[in-house]
């Protein structure tokens, strides 16, 4: 059950093409407004693209050149949104039984199926409740059971945990990991943990285009887009390969260690390094670091025993005593230094 998608939605400036292999989960990453939800709507059949074609397991979902359009109810694409959207007039059991009932199962059979799926998501004890009597996490569990009970060939998840209380997110993530295992699915998310734990592949979108895609571990270890680097918690500078470094469009040279045979002089390349490798100084440091940049502190963000110091371009992780000693605060002028040996250079 593999998905092949090519679609253009002109008025939202979205133009994408990607595949989801059978049994794989793809995480769709990208900043707000990059078109991720639009892509899900197109696959689900809620939004008609201006051009494109999509097949699911050989069956055509739409082919606008050929004039084919399969309505949502015949696509076999289950949709799980931020809100559970349980039908308020039905109890939990009948909500989950809705899919089987709609596809022709008898009431008793549909309820049997529903009960099975409720057990799968540890929500069997909620069967008699009204949706209004559920917590957000409970409702989302029921919504998962409802989507799965319809036996979708493809699951579409649109930030399914974004509206949940942070305390229930880990348990929900475990549930999703269990039920998505072996299923073909696309999940829109902002969370690196979702990508790592739920997805085999990652597609990164920005401004309606795909900027990067590949196996999750590769993308997070060696991001080539600013967004992927941000979600992986890494600093990324982009430019052209020059010597053993990268020259940014602003003229800055970032020296590093090319770890790729393909980094030839002049190709588009990125320099990637961890914030932990960046040190912060009030005076320009002497000595070994070749990469020293003047910057202004914009934001301080506590992270356990560390504090992440954000400037306009780069981030640095320092300890709390260092922050106190240097008197770091938004607006303070500092110098950031990173050793060339800590900077990975590869083509993008």
């Amino acid at each position: 059950m593999s998905l092949h998608l090519t679609a253009t939605v002109a008025d939202r400036d979205v133009d994408v093409s990607f595949d989801v292999a059978d049994g794989c989960t793809v995480a769709l990453l990208g900043p707000n407004g990059s078109g991720k939800s639009t892509v899900l709507s197109v696959v689900a059949g809620i939004l008609r693209p201006d051009a494109g074609r999509a097949t699911l397991d050989g069956a055509t979902l739409f082919d606008l050149a050929g004039g084919t359009w399969t309505p949502p109810h015949q696509r076999g694409t289950g949709l799980l949104a931020q809100d559970a959207l349980l039908f308020p007039h039905l109890d939990v059991l009948d909500n989950v039984a809705f899919g089987p009932r709609s596809t022709g199962a008898s009431r008793a059979r549909a309820r049997d199926t529903a009960m099975t799926w409720l057990r799968q998501v540890d929500a069997a004890d909620l069967a008699d409740r009204r949706p209004s009597a559920l917590s957000g996490g409970q409702a989302q569990r029921v919504a998962i059971a409802r989507a799965l009970a319809a036996e979708p060939r493809l699951m579409l998840l649109d930030e399914p945990m974004a509206a949940l209380d942070v305390t229930v997110v880990p348990a929900m993530r475990q549930t999703l990991r269990r039920v998505l295992d072996g299923r073909t699915a696309v999940i829109v998310t902002h969370d690196v943990l979702d990508a790592l734990l739920l997805a085999d592949h990652v597609v990164v979108m920005d401004g309606g285009r795909i900027v990067e895609q590949g196996a999750t571990r590769d993308i997070l270890a060696r991001p080539r887009s600013t967004f992927a680097a941000g979600i992986a918690g890494l600093n990324l500078v982009r430019g052209r390969a020059e010597g053993s470094g990268v020259r940014t469009p602003g003229g800055l040279l970032v020296a590093g260690m090319p770890d790729d045979e393909t980094v030839h002089e002049g190709v588009t390349a990125v320099g990637v390094f961890s914030p932990a490798a960046v040190s912060v100084h009030l005076e320009r440091p002497g000595g070994s670091p070749r990469n020293v940049y003047a910057a202004t502190v914009r934001e301080l963000e506590p992270r356990g025993s560390q504090v992440r110091v954000r400037t306009d371009e780069l981030a640095a992780d320092v300890t709390v005593p260092v922050v106190a000693e240097l008197g770091l605060a938004p607006g303070v002028e500092v110098f950031l230094a990173v050793k060339a040996s800590e900077v990975a250079i590869y083509s993008a």
């Binding site: 809620i46 694409t77 959207l85 039908f87 809705f98 709609s102 409802r146």
Partner: peptide, 27 residues
């Protein structure tokens, strides 16, 4: 239309959506 969209992705035909979701909700 959010409930109607969900119902259709669950495999409900437009008439079923009208009968089992839309009309009960606006009763």
């Amino acid at each position: 239309q959010r409930y109607e969209v969900v119902a259709s992705t669950l495999g409900a035909r437009p008439t079923t959506v009208l009968r089992r979701v839309t009309l009960p909700l606006v009763l």
